[in-house]
């Protein structure tokens, strides 16, 4: 059950979301704020998530329980 394609799928979702926000942002004088805030938030959150995901994709170390030590 490999899931290393996940970052690309989520990227697509973020891009679609951004387009959606661009066109669906409430009209009026705050449109720019709506657009920029929502898109930037989505991008920032995606970055954070993707970095975390990538960091664990091919881990170099594995967890070792601290309550049990090898004899």
């Amino acid at each position: 059950m490999g899931n290393s394609w996940l970052p690309f799928v989520v990227l697509l979702v973020v891009v679609l979301f951004s387009f959606g926000v661009w066109f669906l942002a409430p009209k009026g004088e705050n449109q720019t704020v709506w657009r920029s805030t929502l898109i930037l938030s989505a991008v920032a959150m995606y970055l954070m998530w993707a970095i975390t995901f990538l960091a664990q994709m091919h881990p170099l170390i594995s967890p070792i329980r601290y309550d049990l030590r090898p004899e």
Binding site: M1, G2, N3, L6, W49, F53, S62, R65, D67, L68
Partner: peptide, 16 residues
């Protein structure tokens, strides 16, 4: 269980 752990094959924790 433990102390070592092994990875589920090809599976990456999906969130965080």
């Amino acid at each position: 269980l433990g102390p070592g752990a092994s990875r589920l094959d090809g599976y990456t924790y999906p969130f965080g």
